[in-house]
Write a protein that binds this DNA or RNA. Structure first.
Lengths: 233, 233
DNA sequence: AATATCATTATGTCTATACATAAGAGGATA
DNA sequence: TATCCTCTTATGTATAGACATAATGATATT
């Protein structure tokens, strides 16, 4: 028997996506209404609604009340970039992870940092410098500032065994962040810690983190020469 | 009157998120069932379901049939990285965009490319090299290979006025891709085109694109010295 | 003790119905 | 022509009820 199973929202979603990919509906085209699609597929409008909502979330289609649903003109491609702990990055390569604290110092936020984190004048910060190793090879140099006002308990953490990232993940697990990526030449300090020649190109990632609009931390991570970051969409 | 508006799924979502952030429910904790939450909020179970589904999509909670809903132990942080056209990157900086084709050549895929794109031996590719300028300053050098079998029409496109990225977006608007980022030293060619000293650190992004499991294109984009890429989550 | 069976339970999904809301279309008015 | 109004329409959301499904835990069997 060709007794076919009932149509679910995933079926609708996939068929609609396929039609868009096959140019049955081209960029900018108006799709049938939910009602019409529901009739075509023999399902409830709510089912079509969920299917189309998912496609809209993915940026495949644009929806507007009264106007209807259109195939997105310029599909907003956005890559998902998994933010993982350095420990995990290292262990994913089947390498042995080692962490070492270089320096721990309480200080007043320098001007550039106060500006970066939007801190008041004279705000207290904890400045940490640390190294991450993969099989005892330098993997990443970490330069971090933590807003003490946002995480008062940080003054009691010594960070000799647990890295600041892991510690913060436990204290402030849900936060927003802004990232920047760049290529920079190794300066004296970086070339020293990362065991490379001066001016070697290094991949650098900076991250500013907030929790409920309050600045928490700014970190600059410099990776060993040749490091590649991966992502997909 | 304290006549409060009816509870919607967004309210439920936000209240649950707030409780998680406030550690009312900590990492790994079991949340009340949908039924219980629906009773608490005075709404239908479907409403709670949608609220929790959104939080699950964001990686805030984990849900499993019969077991229930738990606060995610290691919230998967993932940054959203908008993939934009080079033209847009330039114009977003209020700079004048200019594109120039450097070379266009049909060839058989070299071994490393066949391997990268998973192409059969002797597959035909179109090799393009191009420059993107911002206010007539070198902005990005683009080195691209397109799988002719996947996009036969590409042999008729001359790419003198429209860049390959924009052209492909029109032809293959929906695709998957894998990205890698790295810092590399400028070689002779890059230092020439990007007007910088040899060995200058350059931010480089590589992208491999598929459409329905068929490899479409591989591109290596090298940015001018000092370029920063931004993202957030 | 190990394995198969079955009831239970929380989530996953679908449906029909209802009402809310944004926004386009047309007409009336100034 | 420009502005305001109402009507209409497609999407957005809520609901009660139903059944599906995965996973757990208990029970019975080997």
């Amino acid at each position: 028997m060709t007794e076919r199973a009932k149509i679910g929202f995933q079926d609708v979603r996939d068929v609609v996506l396929e039609r868009i990919q096959n140019r049955v509906w081209s960029q900018g085209d108006l799709l049938p209404t939910e009602q019409e699609l529901a009739e075509e597929f023999g399902c409830a409008r709510a089912t079509v609604n969920r299917a189309l909502r998912e496609l809209a979330d993915r940026g495949i289609i644009d929806r507007k009340r009264k106007s209807g649903t259109r195939v997105a003109v310029s599909p907003v491609k956005q890559a998902k970039l998994e933010i993982v702990l350095t420990r995990q990055l290292v262990e994913d390569r089947n390498a042995n992870y080692r962490y070492a604290l270089v320096e721990r110092k309480e200080e007043t936020a320098p001007g550039w940092l106060a500006s970066q984190l939007d801190l008041p004048m004279g705000a207290k910060v904890l400045h940490l410098r640390a190294m991450h190793y993969a099989d005892n090879q330098p993997f990443q140099y970490e330069d971090r500032w933590i807003n003490i006002a946002a995480v008062p308990k940080v003054v009691d953490a010594d960070f000799t065994t647990v890295g600041p990232n892991e510690w913060l993940l436990g204290e402030v697990p849900f936060s927003n962040a802004e990232l920047t990526f760049a290529a920079v030449p190794a300066d004296d300090e970086l070339s020293d810690y990362l065991a490379c020649a001066k001016a070697t190109p290094l991949f650098q990632m900076e991250r500013t983190t907030w929790f409920r609009s309050q600045p928490v931390t700014f970190v600059r991570m410099s990776f060993h020469p040749g490091y590649q970051m991966r992502s997909q969409y």
